[in-house]
Design a protein around this nucleic acid. Structure first.
Lengths: 386, 386
DNA sequence: GCCACTTACTTTCGTCGCGGAAGAATTATG
DNA sequence: CATAATTCTTCCGCGACGAAAGTAAGTGGC
């Protein structure tokens, strides 16, 4: 499969390096590129010429940032023609499919959602193809599709196991490729978000980078040297055994005091419900904590300390340049930010480098955008394998 | 400074890659090398020829491992002439200097220790030069000196801060270079041990590798992509803020329940002493725990669980291919191995890859050998900077 | 308005390193 | 003894790169 009809190939490795550098790090002059890539000025003329001729790069007239030096011949920034190709990203949830169209730079230019009333693989693929057709009308230059699914994905093509869809070994990429004729990449949703942040988001250009997602579960993504590290237990109840507080609460889905019990949205809701008997939403609990409701303050405070503990441990052991908190549950940071910081301070050496913590509230379209980035990577790198 | 008189230079990058591969991964045929380095057979002939002519490599007659295939022209293993050059490694402690002479492969061929009765930098350098002179008589082909010191070392040359020697900004490399005429590398002792294990020991060829040392303090070394990750707090009381058990013991040197309090040799001795009032050695405590003495069993058991907790956390977050436990305090593993394993199991996902834990009892000569490896690296790589 | 100066980019040319193909060396197999 | 298999060598050509010289396009001084 993996019909790479309209890839950027053939691109030499040097040309590809230039293309990626411009794609990821915005408009850059040839001299800047030469410095960043460790090449001579002459090589850059050679490498950029075919890229400009093929329409992938342009000499953008208005430089984004005015150069410091105001002497000599002005530099000529090169930019990607971000609109030259479009990409589709889908995020499949239990009852909805969220779709976005992005540019090469992964900027969202359109959204399109549809309810999902079946989990039958063929029917799901039909729906995705239908949505693709509808989006293709407004965005004809589609170059690829990325699909994010909660669950285990193999070889960026086959959904090996997805409990919430009741799927096992579904060759989703193939099913959608057949129906659309476009190259398709399938990936675990957290992995897709991590890749997206590594290329275009918080992790751009960092050699060590961690993503922690808080939502229905806890997700962890480790990026070293620009590559995400895969691991066996990802998306199979990750965080169930990360014990943040040995004497912490116990919930149906996690071990006592585990990240899942203390931090995930279901874990927090379960705790409040178990104590008060009332069914409340996550937002209500956060609001309650902000207003001083004792029960909510306690649960959210403990969650904050647990998060701080995890962040401190990650910082101590992995020493990432940055940690990104993402997912639907990061609203916690606004209410319990103080508790988080305090827990970090307590478990980190005073001389250690400060933790660069970034928070990003993500909705389902962000997850879909993550999947679209995978399609971009495939086009640019010319391979679906990571 | 950094007088690289007798380096292997000039070596092209390709030649250097071949040399390192043979040095680190034992005798290898040209075909093997071609596969490992991703080069063609022709390139290997080209690259190895000057290395053989210069006497660095030889065609070792007896292949270490007989090839599987017994057909066709037999392969011709290439090997480093390990004895062609010698290296000295020193480990400086409070009252002793431990010295070793190693081959290019970092095999120890001689040991030589001397008491240290002064901390005056010039006098220490005198002593090191004197010991070098004595060793040089039996091993004339000395190519470099590596020195391991507990404390903060800058640019592999200057001891920025070493509490136990009461040093600040001592240009030790320069002092010893002046006296010996040999290139000298100075490094923090833990960092040196980590480098040694990465090149020649447990971490050989691994992309993610962690070293945890247990001794007077707790040391941590993270190796990613073959490079050790430096960090600000190293050797400044590292592990004082790694809380393994929030309700654990408190000792003079560490926070409550920290790795230093629960695991380091002084921490364990302090606990037993505080409880019994008697001054006992670490070995006596281990023996007591093995024999069933309740107090020792409790302290050592808690230490084992703390170690397991740390190992599990490191595994969860860093996902190293292997974790090496080293230092003088790893005897703990023999007595409390069961507790360690249990704690790891409890805090690790059942589907996660099993932790490859390796234990290495190290004496001071191993630390000295680690320093010698740094000298080897400098010679091979041609630079003292990491 | 002219000229020096600075910086960015282009052109040209030589070199180096690599892969590929063909061939030599050296063994097992029938 | 021919054939196959495997390793290593030789040779050639290509392609990517850097160095250096040349061109372009500005600023600033007089």
């Amino acid at each position: 499969m993996t019909a790479l009809a309209a890839s950027w190939l053939p691109l030499s490795s040097g040309e590809r390096a230039v293309a990626i550098e411009v794609l990821v790090h915005g408009p850059l002059s040839r001299t800047d590129l030469a410095r960043r890539l460790g090449l001579s000025a002459g090589s850059l003329t050679r490498l950029t010429k075919p890229l400009i001729e093929s329409g992938l790069l342009v000499e953008s007239a208005e430089g984004a940032t005015l150069p410091e030096v105001r002497q000599g011949r002005p530099s000529q920034p090169l930019d990607i023609v971000a609109e030259s190709r479009s990409f589709i990203g889908f995020k499949i949830t239990d009852d909805m499919v969220y779709g976005v169209v992005t540019t090469l730079r992964s900027e969202i230019v359109a959204r399109h959602d549809r309810p999902l009333d079946t989990h039958e693989p063929e029917r799901v693929a039909d729906l995705l193809a239908e949505m693709t057709g509808e989006l293709a009308r407004a965005h004809p230059s589609l170059a690829g599709i990325g699909i994010g699914v909660g669950g285990l994905v193999r070889r960026r093509a086959v959904v090996g196991e997805s409990p919430f869809l009741s799927w096992r070994d579904v060759p989703l990429a193939e099913l959608v490729e057949e129906r659309t004729g476009l190259p398709v990449v399938v990936e675990n949703d957290v992995a897709a978000l991590v890749e997206a942040e590594t290329w275009f988001g918080a992790g751009r250009g960092l050699d060590r980078f961690v993503v922690l997602t808080i939502g229905a579960g806890i997700g962890y993504g480790l990026v070293l040297g620009g590559k995400r590290v895969p691991y066996a237990e990802e998306d199979r109840g990750f965080g169930r055994h990360w014990i943040a507080d040995p004497s912490g609460p116990l919930t149906p889905e996690g071990e006592r005091g585990s990240a899942v019990s203390m931090l995930s949205i279901p874990g927090i809701r379960y705790q409040v419900q178990a104590a008060t008997g009332r069914e409340v939403t996550y937002e209500e609990i956060l609001a309650g904590a902000a207003e001083g409701d004792p029960m909510c303050v306690r649960v959210i405070g403990e969650a904050g300390r647990a998060l701080g503990t995890l962040v401190a441990q990650i910082s101590n052991f992995v020493m990432p340049r940055k940690i990104l908190l993402a997912g639907e549950g990061v609203g916690l940071m606004e209410v319990a930010g103080e508790a988080v910081d305090e827990a970090i301070r307590a478990q980190r050496h005073p001389l250690a480098a400060p933790v660069r913590l970034e928070t990003k509230v993500s909705d389902f379209h962000d997850w879909a955008r993550g999947a679209a980035v995978l399609a971009i990577q495939v086009l640019v790198l010319g391979t679906a394998e990571p």
